[in-house]
Design a protein around this nucleic acid. Sequence first.
DNA 1: TATAATAGCTAATGTGATTAGCTAAAAAGA
DNA 2: TCTTTTTAGCTAATCACATTAGCTATTATA
Lengths: 202, 202
Amino acid sequence: MKACLNKTTIIEMAAKIADERGIANVTLKVLAAELGVKSPSLYKHFNGGLDELNKELMLYGWHTLESKITKAAIGKAKDDAIMAICYAYRNFAAGHKGLFEAMQWYNMYQSEEHLQATQGMISVFFQVLDSYELNEEQKVHIVRMFRGFLQGFSSIESHGGYGNPLSINDSFDFALKTILNGIHDLQGGMENETNFERCQPV
Amino acid sequence: MKACLNKTTIIEMAAKIADERGIANVTLKVLAAELGVKSPSLYKHFNGGLDELNKELMLYGWHTLESKITKAAIGKAKDDAIMAICYAYRNFAAGHKGLFEAMQWYNMYQSEEHLQATQGMISVFFQVLDSYELNEEQKVHIVRMFRGFLQGFSSIESHGGYGNPLSINDSFDFALKTILNGIHDLQGGMENETNFERCQPV
DNA sequence: TATAATAGCTAATGTGATTAGCTAAAAAGA
DNA sequence: TCTTTTTAGCTAATCACATTAGCTATTATA
């Protein structure tokens, strides 16, 4: 066979198209053309068609992000580690607008797979938070807070939603430091024991 | 004419469909059927077809949210007002999953109109922040922080992205209080003058 | 009342996803 | 090596939905 395609090649091309030409161009037609193939051929690799492809693209994005975040946290601790993780997240979103958008397509795919996809990122957060004096419940709250903030902020920024001339970078930095300040206020004054069992998803 | 449709009726039906049957069902076909009309008829009201309709739906959503938020803040000040606004936002997102999702479709529509759509919400935030001892620059940062957090948190929650059994409500409350704590740390220690001119978008 | 505007309709077109069924290359087994 | 099976690609056909063109009857207006 000529093209020698496989899932990985196809997904990587889909990610490239999403980032370079916008997510609206992630169609079987464009994708096939870009790969030098006719669109029905893609069904040999993705039985579920476009839906399955989008799902795989989402998973690919989360896995990529996870690895960026993991690397960013290496050799850092506490606030430094948190800052590094958050910047890695935001940089990823800014550098992969299309892919990042594909990653938000939870709705189409039953949450189970998505929960697993985000698991890696969540684990990194937990590892860093383990060095704070926080109970398990607080850690879950904090991870949820960061997930929310990072996704929303990056998404708005990506879409040009922050119209003010004030530096977005400064805002991001300010927000992270404000949140970290808020977290510091929790420390010390809290008992660290809880009967709450940490579960994988957050 | 029989149906007596107009933009408002159509948009309201689109919002209803989005919320009840998911945003994927906001198609001219479904919408027309729901309105007792054939799909080409909708072009008499939306020259720009589905694209224009989606844009109007987005604007409708932001205007609705703005009014909810405005009402929520009435008679409240400082942290109470912020909390009320944030809860109003989250409740809106939870009660209008489809519409809320339509509101995020920045990308398709040039940002100008979207910037204006979010303006109302932003103004409410600023009004509340005016009673804090913060300079204009800090206020912009803070509004951006809340916008990011609210959008991300609500979006993840809506899509079932928080898989942990721990109460999401508690997490939301925790996050708001943590952020507010962080903001309190800023107060007093900051000079309030700046040459920064507040611009409408944030 | 006569005219113009318009909201609806049907029929036709276009684009992209998907399915069915064919074919030749590659792989596997004798 | 030769035969058989698998499979990745293809073409042709179908389907779904958006969109366009052009018709018609109702409403509004002079």
